[in-house]
Nucleic acid binder design. Structure first.
Lengths: 245, 245
DNA sequence: CGACGTGTTGATCTCTCTCAATTAGAGTGG
DNA sequence: CCACTCTAATTGAGAGAGATCAACACGTCG
């Protein structure tokens, strides 16, 4: 894995950063401490760990998770290139959740005062970070809605669709030939609050119904937009109904 | 409901704002647009609503929620005095979730450019907002863990304990005589992804086991710290185990 | 007084979990 | 090249937590 300059950082694709000025880029570059590699399966951040830096994921996949004392695990979300790791942990003191690499991973490590410097020296970038944090919370809300109120079938379909779109957005061909897919059924189960066995059976059922195909580490979404049964899941947001009151 | 000055704003109790300087307070004051009242049950923000301002909850309770097209509802979290409403919605354009008042509520409404001005004029406050957003995400993660991996009993116990602590923290006597509790069983059910019937039965069971008592709109937590069975739930964070790897 | 919201309960149903076992594929060492 | 190991996928059987549906009680309110 090679060095990635801030010029080429996947974060730059984000709406809030595309217009970063030269001086802002220079600032970011000066706050970057180093670049490290973690191997598949390795823990990047441990739950409860203190003094952790701010990271950015340059290459590879990872996920954030929490565990209960008896081992039950909940995956909070999956991290793709361009995602920031640890804004929340970084600020609280100790990490509220762990982060584990799904594949070999290349990380950009920032100085521990990076977040504050960013705010102080470049308010526009600080604003961008706030936007990022707010956006993450919104995603967390979607996940909560899924886990709390959707059936296993809906949850899995929804996850596949969202992941497909996220990964496709990073590819030049937008996923025309399917997208790389590194999750095991266990990961899917832990992200959706389901058991492994039921996740497997549901995945099978959806495949049979024509939603998707997973093959050789690639996810192919077939005709989502055509299947009315999945319409609710495809849109970006939830199709809010009426205010209930 | 009377006027609340920024001096007396419940937000000032937050660690990140206690040390606000005079000029910072003046800035905040200048960004405040007005103060409005909403009545119990009223929707403060509709799902999908555009152009919504940034609010702060001065008095009363509310909650954020999302709904599916068939009416299923998931409550994302409950809002108490001092909570900020809509950092995420505000930034995205349209509201990703709705907000409804649980009681009569007093809101502080900010100018629509408040967030940006805060970042631009007072980086320390901007940083505080980022911290807030990150903290919210962390809470969302806790909720996801509960809904995804805990049993109904654990979820409810956990919610009661967390709410008790939050409300107590706002009271002078720290909840010695119980704390006001405005949630109906339906709210609890919608927050935890449970059915109303099962929520009721579980609530009963916990009460019988001595966890709590709800009476006349007040929640009394009995001897949580003494009950080993709830130990996992009482601590602030989750008692993370080992890295699984 | 009737309507409504909330709490309460019983009966029944089913989705999802748990436990257990088997298979398949990749990697490793001899 | 083969035995050995490990992970991930797969499947079946049985159990159970929690959902659904349907009443009923009670207090508030117009």
């Amino acid at each position: 894995m090679e060095f990635v300059s801030c010029q080429a950082c996947p974060l730059r694709a984000l709406p809030l950063f595309v217009e970063a000025s030269g001086s802002e880029l220079a600032l970011i570059e000066s706050l970057k401490k180093e670049q490290v590699v973690a191997h598949a399966g390795q823990c990047i951040v441990h739950e409860g760990q203190a003094d952790l830096p701010l990271y950015t994921l340059l290459q590879g996949w990872a996920f954030r998770f929490k565990t209960l004392s008896d081992g039950r695990r909940q995956i909070l979300n999956f991290l793709l290139p361009g995602d920031v790791i640890g804004v929340q942990q970084h600020m609280g003191g100790v990490a509220a959740c762990g982060v584990q690499a799904l594949s070999d991973v290349l990380l950009c490590v920032f100085r521990s005062d990076a977040l504050w410097e960013l705010h102080r020296m470049a308010p526009a970038l600080g604003f961008g970070v706030t936007w990022l944090a707010a956006h993450e919370e919104s995603m967390a809300g979607d996940a909560l809605l899924s886990v709390g109120r959707r059936s296993a079938e809906e949850r899995i379909a929804s996850l596949l669709i969202v992941m497909f779109k996220r990964v496709a957005a990073l590819l030049p061909d937008a996923g025309a030939q399917g997208v790389p897919f590194l999750l095991t059924q266990q990961h899917i189960a832990d992200a959706l609050g389901l058991s492994l066995a039921h996740t497997h059976r549901t995945l099978r059922k959806l495949e049979k119904r024509g939603l998707h195909r997973i093959e050789a580490g690639r996810l192919h979404l077939l005709d989502v937009k055509l299947l009315p049964q999945f319409a609710d899941l495809y849109g970006d947001g939830k199709p809010a109904r009426r205010p209930l009151l």
